[in-house]
Every structure is written in C-alpha cells, then in structure tokens.
Amino acid sequence: MNEGQIELIVQKVMEQLQKRFTPDHNIARENVKEIIEKGLVFREQDWKTSIPQPAFKEGVAELTASTPARIGVWRTGTRPLTKTMLKLQFDHAAAIDAVSSEVLEKYLEEFNLFTVETCYENKEVYLKRPDKGRVLTDDAVDTISSRCQKRPQVQIVVSDGLSASAVETNLKDVYPALIDSLKINNLSFGTSFFVKGGRVACMDHIGDILEPEVLVLLIGERPGLVSASSMSAYMCYRPRKGIIESDRNVISNIHPLGTPPIEAGAHIGTVLRRMIEQKVSGVKLEL
C-alpha cells in the first residue's frame, strides 16, 4: 500500500466518521464498521494474554501489578501464546529501528541545529568502534570553528548516539525547557548544533575546539524494550581531551515514561549553574 492509498483510506474514514453525526446514524455506522474491519486495530490491551483458569483468580492482577516483567502470560504446550510473542517482537523491532535509523532533518530545523559528523563512517563501524564516534571529522572541526561562538558560557550539543528516536521524541520538549532554564539561571549559551554518529566522549573534542565553560550533550541511549526513545544529558565543566568518566554528570532515562523531558530540561540549567559556581563537575560537584 503506498502513501496515496493510505491517505485515501484515512480521508474516507474521516468522511464516514463525520457522517456518524448526521441524522442517518445507522447507515453511517455500518459504513464505518465495514472500513475498520478491513484492517486490524491494535492497542496495548489487545496484546494481553491471560491464564484461562488460575488457581487464585484475584491473585493474577496482584502479581502482574507488582512488576513490569511479562508474567501471567500463559502458554500453548511449552511455547508462549501468539500475542505475547508478537508483543515481544514488536518492542524489539522498535528498539532496533531506533538504533539503525537517522534523525529526520525537520526535528533539527525546528531549533536551527546544523549537522556535523564524527569519524563514525557508517552504522556498522559506529557500533564496532566506539573510539571513532568520539572524534569529529576535519570538516566538522572547520564547520563548528567558523559557525559557532567561541568560549561560550554554555555549549549545547545534540547527538543521535544509539537512538535516533530518542532525539525525535524528546528534543521538542527538552530543548525549549533547557533554554528557559538557562535564562532563569542567568546563563548565556553559544551556537547549538547536532552531531551525527556521536559517542559521549565527543564532548571532549568539542570542548578542545570551542572551549566552553560548561557543555551539555543531549544524546540517545542504548534502547531497551520498555523505551526505545530514552535520552541522556551528559554535562561537564571545561570539557577537554583526557577528561575521565567520573568528571561528568548525567541525567539519564529521559523519556515520557521515565524522567519527563520538560523536567529534565529545567533541571539541567541548575546543574550547569552549580558547575560554573563550583568550577568543577562529576563526583566532586555538590548538587
């Protein structure tokens, strides 16, 4: 089915739905039903499978409510039921797509972010060689040297990391909240940009070039099955080559079902202000 056909169907469904509110109710309902029956509508509850005759009926809900683990799913022979299996595959599909896909330009244009690349070459090399994702290409070095303000108080960098969908899902909320929180904390910021194929330590290379007082990197995390769109904010005071992991601070698990993106954005400003006040980051920073 191509996009045109899908649009047509959507249009047709919409027309039919509108007709529901016309006086001729019954005919309209029939039409809607007919169209919906041509496709399957899957919602979260449609994946649920259950134990047909549990020994303690009321106990099932108590157990399943106590954990996000996939329990009480039942079986056929020794194998899982079809819907339980399809749900697991569906969640895994979202996670692998998040790793393999690229951030669409429109999400970056919204905040005027231009794009530079690390030496990652392609997705395969990116996964095999974490070291390459820590260094910007020569072109990237030239671009940010010429386009970015040097020695800003705060440098904001966004990167896809291991999840493009983390950027697409969260940036629209995190970024404006972060800008607001910088203003509230009386901090100024330089020229933000996007790094394709970045690893956390690309902060150090960028730090060497632009010499910001503090840098915050918003980067996609390794996707899990609960969320394939989780983002982390790594922060560092005077980032430069040779920084060790424990010199960085991080707010992780940023996604709509984890740390809410707007809250995370607001919190980052406070952490950055403290770094500037205490002239330190990482484990030594007092929050």
């Binding site: 954990t67 996000p68 683990a69 996939r70 329990i71 799913v73 899982p80 339980t84 697991l88 969640d91 895994h92 390794r222 899990g224 099955l225 609960v226």
Partner: peptide, 15 residues
C-alpha cells in the same frame, strides 16, 4: 527471565 525480557538489566535472555 519472564518472556526473555529482563526489565531491570534491559537485555534479552532466554525465557
């Protein structure tokens, strides 16, 4: 692991 999905370690094993 329940349905092979470890909800704490965030990886998949055997069920």
């Amino acid at each position: 692991v329940p349905m092979a999905d470890d909800c704490m370690l965030n990886y998949q094993s055997t069920s």
